[in-house]
Nucleic acid binder design. Sequence first.
DNA 1: TGACGGTATGTCGTAACTGACATATTATTA
DNA 2: TAATAATATGTCAGTTACGACATACCGTCA
Lengths: 103, 103
Amino acid sequence: MYKKKKQLLEAKGWKVGTVDEFLGLNDEEIAYIELKLALSKKIRELRLEKNLTQVETAKLLGSSQSRVAKMESGDPSVSIDLQIRSLLALGASMEELAQVISP
Amino acid sequence: MYKKKKQLLEAKGWKVGTVDEFLGLNDEEIAYIELKLALSKKIRELRLEKNLTQVETAKLLGSSQSRVAKMESGDPSVSIDLQIRSLLALGASMEELAQVISP
DNA sequence: TGACGGTATGTCGTAACTGACATATTATTA
DNA sequence: TAATAATATGTCAGTTACGACATACCGTCA
């Protein structure tokens, strides 16, 4: 199974076992999850750019290390809302944000 | 008071009275609210493009008319997450989404 | 090997969001 | 004017997302 599909499923909170578990994910859901994963990567990217640990970043955001880890993995318990607020707090511009969504 | 500022404050859930209420909104918060308002407008735009009422749209989204109205007004009780999911459900592409964020 | 810094994973109580409903407001048309 | 359709506003109970904490995992360096 391709890595991207696996990530999609895992981000949805599913365990990957059989192939046809892909059924049940419609276009909107796939777009949503891909968006979340793209934001994940950008958060980690900005954090590393600034040479911050997850603990330091959590403090900066008023959050916790575990939640930062979840943000960066596209965990189902993390909303896109929080990801965007975090990116803005990390200094991302609107242009950068837009580029994450549509590179 | 300019309309945009008024919208910003109202979206934040504040009543507009005096000028210095603007204090307390930092850059990130302003960016967040502007983003929410931009998404609001796009939701209405797509809905009207499809000649849907809020009631019809609510049914399409599995939501309610009142929440659609709030989505379209950038109400503080509506998350960016819900706005994005709604836009995707209304058929918005990633490119459109990106353009909303950075026109 | 062990210790340590960084990250990942799981759980929990609380706060924020959500759909639903009631009701108010606005616009249009007879 | 009244009636009707569309939208806006307010509230609330159920759900979800949140920060916090504990603990597990992983790499690196002594």
